[in-house]
Structures are given as structure tokens and as C-alpha cells.
Design a protein around this nucleic acid. Structure first.
Lengths: 235, 235
DNA sequence: TGCAAAGTATGATATTTGTCATACCTGCTG
DNA sequence: CAGCAGGTATGACAAATATCATACTTTGCA
């Protein structure tokens, strides 16, 4: 399942500057460190599960995490991703509700755990930290409300294009312009909100339209602007 | 458009106890009051518009507000409602982005305005207030991610049933068990994410199934449990 | 190395939903 | 009070997408 790791220090964490902890000083980072632990998760491992109660927040040290919810008919819906420097599991701490999503490792990952007490203490003591988290939750809502609109109004093909661009933003491109994450067609379908077969067919169409190229699970973006136009994301 | 009103005091506001301001003491409420103003909006009036920059937050004193986004093809998507005691317009303050939704009055409404400065001051000075807002934004995200899942996976009829239940939660029922808000079929369609004709047909089906009754715009809920089951919301 | 299992691909078909045309109400305004 | 406009309703049709069946391909593991 998961294996304890030598716990990295926040102060020397490569992702510090791009995380919500960036505004904290070294004393405060030591406070966070004091009760922190770090676990290793193999690809496919579950970090936490929808419906259970969280006892703290998680911060991704290394790896790729998907956050998903179970739909009524048992179908998975991917609602968010997290990678180095991102925190997860904080929403249910703040809303005082059970966890609303399940977190699974897409790759071998290292994830730190910070107990609720330390998290809330920091929120109370540090207005700047509090504002950072507020900024994060507010952005989450804005992204989600855009996604609601897109789910409701765009065609499957448009949503697929949009999801590819989202994956690019989240995980970046490798040296070959391929999206730097490996997802099954089924997982892509669970982002787009459609059937696996539809994704396969539509990826084929995007390929025929010379917007992407496919080599197994690797998806190469050939025409990003074309995808933006297709997804109707032009501002 | 909107008419200045005699500004009500937070301390004597009937919605204080159920609002995010419930944890503030009388001195703090006076702080909020100091630069507050209140405007009257007629049914259909716009309170703020997607894309513009907000200069403060709004708190609904009386009335019913819908928050919606424009989809790519110009179709409205209703993403939230607000009523007495609810605050709106705070997300874009916190995310430091332009407003992500448009707010329009569904009824004649009175809405207070609190400048950004006072809002942020309170956030900085009052950890309890900060935590209340965090709770709010976290809940928003959770609701939104459920909605994403539903949009992606449920049938139009299920979503319609779910929206009716959502309207019931938000606006309540009158003495006749009718949902206490008047929306056009088009507006309902803009919540459900479908065409107006589909809503008309499906409302007809729900009526035939004896789950609801219709008298013009008034929708009477005959079998709430039946709607819950249909919407697949059973826990 | 080769087999089983999982994942990917493709076709045929059924269903759902969107779109367009049209007609009918209902409430408002001149 | 007539008539017009906006909203509601219904049918016919087209398009998109889900579902089912089947075959092919890759991957992991014994």
C-alpha cells in the first residue's frame, strides 16, 4: 500500500516556491515539519477515499495524483489532478464534511501528510497563509464552474480537446511535445464524461484532423492553437 | 438600474445568524457597516457582470439572485443562486481574477455592498471569519464537483429532478408545496444544461409520473422521495 | 517465451437529445 | 378590448452518443 519515507523538509523542498507554503518563513515551515510524515505510493495506490474522514492535508512531494468521485452508477469522474507542490484533502477539512473525492497515484509518488491541528493552527496564526488557501479554494470553484458550463454545453469532441489542453497545463509536455502523463482511454473518458469507445473514436478524428498524433498511450500535440479553437477556449 | 436604499445595519439584519458574519461581534459588525451601502434591484436587473472587476462583496438583504456564466455559444449556464444572508462576488476578490459569473435579480431585491478593503481587513484580523469564508468556498467546490459528475453522468431527466430538489433546498416550498421561486422553462433549461423544449417535455413526464404538478410557472412537488430516487441522490 | 488479461479498436444498432417548424396560450399595453 | 409579444407546448426529423458485439494488440507475468 504505502511505505514510510524519510520525511523531506519543507524548507528545502523544490516545490516550496510554487506551493501554498511559499509565504511562510523558516520558523513557520519548521512548525509544519514538526508533525509531518511522508509516504510512498506505488502507481494505482489509493491515498484517501471518498466518504472517509480526513485527519489532515496531503502535499504532493513527487508524482502525479488523480482525484475522482464515484458517479451514481459507479462510474468514476475525474475532477482534478495534483502534482509536485499541490495540496489535496484540504477541502473536506475546511467544509467539515467527509472527503468528497478519492485520491489515487497515477505514478509512483511521494506524498507528505500534515495533521489537521497544524494546518488549522497555521490558518489561525498566519493571515497570509489563510489568504493563499482562500485564493486556492476560490480558484477551484471558478475552474469547477467553468467545467460545469462546458459539460453542459460543449460537444464530446470539444470537451476532449479541452481536457487534452488541461492535461498539458497540468503535466506539461515532454521533449517530443507529448503530454507528460499516461492515462488509459477509460481514464480520459472519465475526465470528459463519456464512454471509452467515444474517446477512442474522437482521438482518431483529432488525429485525422492533424491536431494530435498517437503512439500508444502517448499523445502528441501537433496543433495546440487548433485544439484551443476547437475547444472554443479562444478569449 | 439600481436605487440607493437606507442602508440596514448588520447587527439588526434578520439574516445575520445564518450568514458568514454570524461569528463577528458588534464592534466588528460596525466596522463592516461603516463603508457599507445598500442598493435596490428590480427583477431582471444586473448586479454585476462576468468579466468585470469586482471592488467588493455583495450580501443579499432581501430577494433572489441567480449567478450564471455565458457558455461558448452564448448560452447561459446557471451555476448558483443566492438569497437572504448569502454573499456573492467574493470568489473573484479572493482569486484576484475578473468576476467569473453574472448576478441578476430574479425578484425585486435589496443587496448590500461591502468594499474590498473592509472585507480583506476582516479576513486578516479575524481568523474565525476567515475560517467561515474558507468553509464556504470549500463547500462551493464540493457542490460544484458533484454537479460536474452529475452533468457528465446523469440523464437529462435525472438532472431535472435534481435541479428541482436543489431549488427546493435553496428557496423552500410555499404553503401549497410549490417551489418558492418563479423561473422560466428556459432558465430551468439553463440550470439543467439542456434545451428549453426538453425541459417542457420532461416536466410533462414528471407530471405524468405524479412526481410534480404544474400550474403555470408554479411547480408543486408531489413526491419528493420519488424525485430523490429518480435523481439517484439516495445516500 | 508464451499465455491470459487488460486495454484498444471498429462496426452495427438503439436511444437520447437537439433543432426546426408550428401552434397555442397568457398577460400586457395601447 | 384587441392585438401583439413572450413564453409554453407538441410533432417531426436529424444528429450525437451510448450500448453491445467482436476482434485485434499490447502488457505483464508464470
Amino acid at each position: 500500500m504505502s511505505k514510510k519515507l524519510h520525511t523531506p523538509k519543507c524548507a528545502t523542498c523544490g516545490s516550496k516556491h510554487k506551493s501554498v507554503f511559499c509565504s511562510l518563513n523558516s520558523v513557520q515551515l519548521t512548525d509544519i515539519d514538526s508533525d509531518k510524515s511522508c509516504d510512498f505510493y506505488k502507481k494505482g495506490d489509493t491515498i484517501f477515499r471518498e466518504g472517509s474522514n480526513s485527519r489532515g492535508i496531503f502535499c504532493v512531494n513527487k508524482g502525479k495524483i488523480k482525484l475522482s468521485r464515484m458517479g451514481p452508477s459507479g462510474k468514476e469522474q475525474i475532477v482534478r489532478f495534483a502534482t509536485s507542490g499541490d495540496i489535496i484533502g484540504y477541502n473536506s477539512m475546511l467544509s467539515k464534511r467527509p472527503l468528497s473525492a478519492t485520491a489515487k497515484a497515477l505514478d509512483d509518488s511521494a506524498v507528505c501528510f500534515i495533521p489537521a491541528r497544524n494546518f488549522f493552527e497555521m490558518l489561525r496564526k498566519e493571515p497570509n497563509f489563510s489568504l493563499k488557501i482562500l485564493e486556492l479554494t476560490a480558484k477551484n470553484w471558478e475552474n469547477a464552474s467553468r467545467l460545469i458550463t462546458d459539460m453542459a454545453q460543449k460537444t464530446t469532441k470539444q470537451r476532449l480537446a479541452e481536457m487534452l489542453l488541461w492535461l498539458k497545463e497540468t503535466f506539461g509536455l515532454d521533449e517530443d511535445n507529448c503530454i507528460d502523463v499516461k492515462l488509459s482511454r477509460e481514464e480520459i473518458a472519465n475526465m470528459v464524461g463519456t464512454a471509452t469507445e467515444a474517446v477512442i473514436r474522437l482521438l482518431g478524428e483529432l488525429k485525422k484532423d492533424k491536431l494530435i498524433a498517437l503512439e500508444g498511450k502517448r499523445i502528441k500535440l501537433l496543433d495546440i492553437h487548433g485544439l484551443v479553437v476547437l475547444a472554443d477556449l479562444v478569449d
